[in-house]
Every structure is written in C-alpha cells, then in structure tokens.
C-alpha cells in the first residue's frame, strides 16, 4: 500500500496555546481513516494543520510524496487534496451551481463535465442548481459541501465531522455517499464525534487524546478494545 498522506510528529496550535503535541498519521490509497477521540483532543486542529489553515510549528506533512507543510490552502487544494469544514461549509448567498463553480475555481478546463459528474453523484441538489444554498436543509447543505469539495476530483479528501447536527437518517445517507466517493478512488480522512458510526465504515482509525496519538489500528476491532471503549467512546 502506498501512503498518499503522511503527517509526522505534527506540533500546532492557536496563538500561545499548543493543541497538537506531535501527532502522526498515515492515509493510504483507497482507504477511509477515521480520527476519533474526546472533545478537545485536537481532531479538528489536526485537519486544519494538514490543510494549512493553522500553522505547523513542528513535524512535517507530505501529500503524495510532496512536502506541503505550511503551504497555503489555495496551493494545497491544487495538489489534489480537498477539505470540508464542519460548519459554514457552503456559500449561502451563492446558488448551488455557483457553489460548485467555486469548488472548481482553479480548474482550467473540464468544468462542465465535472459539474455533471458531481451532480450525478448528488441528484438531490442537481434538481435545485439555480437556488441559493441558504435555502437548503441541513442534510442537503452537507451534500453540497461534499459536492463542492469534489469539484477538483481530489485524491485525498479531509472531512471534519460530516455527520454533526444531522438527523440519524441523514447521517446514514451522508456516510453512504462518503463510501461511494471512496469507491470512486479518493482516500478519505475524517474526524468524527460519532465514533461508533464512523468506525463501522472506516478501514482504520486513530484515537487522539490531549493532542497526542493514543491508539491506532483496524477500525473493526477497535470498538471491542476495552481501553478505547471505556476511555474515548463512552461505552
């Protein structure tokens, strides 16, 4: 297996506060990897550091063999990785079509084709392409956020809590979509509060606590691990 994304001993934080004290992880081709852990473990900060949204003070990040440590987000997105933030992940006053056009902003050609491919994946929003994104329901908004991130046909997709604040039924269909995107060839790294659900469809998982790696392994067996269950999943 080849690693598409590799974070090594990443140290990062905001201002004076250090959140990540040397976190490492690897994402291989065609994998879905979940990062779980209690609140304040630094899960979201890890994704932001990987995507250049908070500065990396130590360690390194490689994307498909290329050093992208502290590259700006608009450069990283051009190297084949996209990111979906947890909240405020659509442009509310833009139409659905314009949201996707912005997702494909750096594309030089093939925008039309890609638009149709992405709409094919998300028929729910395809029928409403001229409407403002602010009129979408929570679940459809999340679909649009995923769709926007797919406009550049990324090889790596970072998802920050894709199931947050969605109804149980919506959670299932979002995770189905994520699995479908993964089958289409994108490796996926996602952060989840909803650990049980996330582990059920991931290949591997990392457990983070207090800004440090605590545990890693196959997702399937992880829920059975007594220590993980007790400490981090509230089981």
């Amino acid at each position: 297996m080849t690693a598409v994304l590799e974070a090594k001993r990443v140290v990062s934080g905001y201002g004076e506060v250090e959140i990540l004290h040397g976190v490492s992880l690897t994402l291989n081709e065609n994998e879905i990897v979940a990062v779980i852990g209690p609140n304040g473990a630094g899960k979201s900060t890890l994704l932001k550091a990987v995507f250049g949204l908070v500065s990396v003070r130590g360690g390194s990040i490689h994307l498909m063999g290329r050093d992208i440590t502290n590259l700006s987000p608009d450069r990283i997105v051009q190297s084949g990785m996209s990111y979906v933030p947890q909240t405020e992940n659509v442009f509310p006053s833009l139409t659905i079509n314009e949201n996707l056009e912005m997702g494909g902003f750096v594309r030089r050609d093939g925008l039309r084709d890609r638009l149709e491919r992405v709409y094919g994946l998300f028929p729910d929003i395809a029928s409403r392409r001229g409407e403002r994104a602010s009129r979408l329901s929570g679940g459809q908004r999340q679909m649009l956020a995923l769709a926007r991130a797919l406009m550049l046909d990324p090889q790596v997709l970072l998802l920050d809590e894709p199931s947050a604040s969605l109804s149980p039924k919506m959670v299932d269909s979002i995770f189905e979509k994520i699995a479908e995107i993964n089958r289409g060839g994108a490796a996926i790294l996602l952060v989840e509060q909803n650990a049980r659900e996330a582990l059920s469809f991931s290949n591997r998982a990392y457990v983070l606590a207090m800004g440090e790696n605590r545990f890693e392994g196959e997702a399937k067996g992880m829920l059975d691990n007594e220590e993980v269950g007790r400490l981090y999943l509230g089981a």
Partner: peptide, 24 residues
C-alpha cells in the same frame, strides 16, 4: 464572471473561499 462570483463567495465566507483555492 468568475472573478465576480469569487468576490461574492469571499464576501460570504472568506475561509471557505481560500479552502476552495480562491486567491483572496
């Protein structure tokens, strides 16, 4: 125009615009 849409997008959410690859 692409520029104008990117201006409106940046006005909506500058962080998301940068994440989308827009040079803000």
């Amino acid at each position: 125009t692409k520029l104008g849409k990117a201006m409106r997008a940046t006005s909506d959410n500058a962080d998301l615009a940068r994440v989308s690859g827009i040079d803000t």
